[in-house]
Simulated assay, not measured.
Amino acid sequence: MRKIVVNAMGEQCPIPVVKAKKAMAELPQEGGEAEILVDNEISVQNLGKMADQKGLKWNSEKTAEHEYHVHIFVGEGQEKPKVKAAEEEVCMPDRRGHSVAVISSSVMGNGDDELGKILMKGFIYALSQLDTLPETILFYNGGVFLTTEGSDSLEDLKSMEAQGVKILSCGTCLNYYGLTEKLQVGSVTNMYVIAEKMAGASNLIRP
């Protein structure tokens, strides 16, 4: 089975979809596989949506922090997608802005901790409903409890991650609290990256 590899790293929608369709149209009559390399989950979802619309089998794998491989299979007898102009493609909007949210505690504000937990859960939910999502959410110190097993905010955080928001938890903090093996969303980072993300942010959001 012939395979065509398409490098769409750094490309924004609809370019990965257009490149994928062009590659699929070049496959032989008996079919084959188009493997598309992208660097964000928005592109993965758009490619999957295109494949679903065409009735094609597909899967994806994350091979590095900013690298995804999407495999789309075209079989014999299946109609090969026609290449449309970029402006004709319908893309899932990228709702991310250039702000960074910084969460250093599992509670919000000073006072009663039970109230603080309720407020923090509400804050993260509200964050997930914003028209423009933060580009990155950083968790350190007690904030890492929110990204690990037992957190009431996992569903909201996973929803934002699926839309391209980077969820990063301090590795030193996870280790200190014995939570390294309990991380449920996002990835582990270090203090250099945390400092770099904060320094490069156009806006910092702190609960």
Rank of each mutant, 00 (worst) to 15 (best):
E155V: 09
D156Q: 14
D156K: 14
D156F: 10
D156I: 15
D156C: 11
D156R: 11
L157T: 12
K158G: 04
K158V: 09
K158N: 10
K158E: 14
K158H: 12
S159Y: 12
S159F: 11
S159K: 13
S159T: 12
M160H: 04
M160L: 09
M160F: 13
E161I: 11
E161K: 10
A162K: 15
A162H: 11
G164C: 01
G164T: 11
V165W: 07
V165Q: 06
V165D: 00
V165N: 04
V165K: 01
K166F: 07
K166M: 12
K166A: 13
K166Q: 13
I167S: 02
I167G: 03
I167Y: 09
I167K: 01
I167E: 05
L168W: 03
L168D: 00
L168G: 00
S169R: 10
S169D: 11
S169N: 02
C170M: 01
C170I: 04
C170R: 03
C170L: 04
C170G: 05
C170N: 13
G171S: 15
G171Y: 09
G171N: 14
T172Y: 07
T172S: 12
T172Q: 05
C173N: 03
C173Y: 03
C173P: 03
C173A: 09
L174A: 08
N175R: 13
N175V: 07
N175S: 14
Y176L: 10
Y176V: 11
Y176K: 07
Y177N: 00
Y177D: 01
G178L: 02
G178E: 03
L179N: 01
L179S: 07
T180I: 08
T180E: 10
T180L: 12
T180Q: 06
E181M: 06
E181K: 10
E181H: 03
E181P: 02
E181F: 02
K182A: 06
K182R: 07
K182Y: 06
K182D: 13
L183M: 08
L183K: 14
L183S: 04
L183Y: 08
L183N: 06
Q184L: 04
Q184Y: 01
Q184C: 07
Q184E: 15
V185A: 00
V185Y: 06
G186N: 04
S187G: 05
S187Q: 05
S187F: 11
S187A: 06
S187K: 14
V188W: 08
V188I: 14
T189I: 02
T189D: 05
N190Q: 09
N190R: 01
N190C: 06
M191F: 10
M191C: 12
M191K: 01
Y192E: 09
Y192C: 07
Y192L: 14
V193W: 14
I194V: 13
A195Q: 08
A195P: 04
E196R: 11
E196W: 11
E196H: 15
K197F: 15
K197S: 10
K197A: 15
K197W: 14
K197D: 15
M198F: 13
A199K: 03
G200F: 02
G200N: 10
A201S: 13
A201V: 00
A201H: 07
A201L: 02
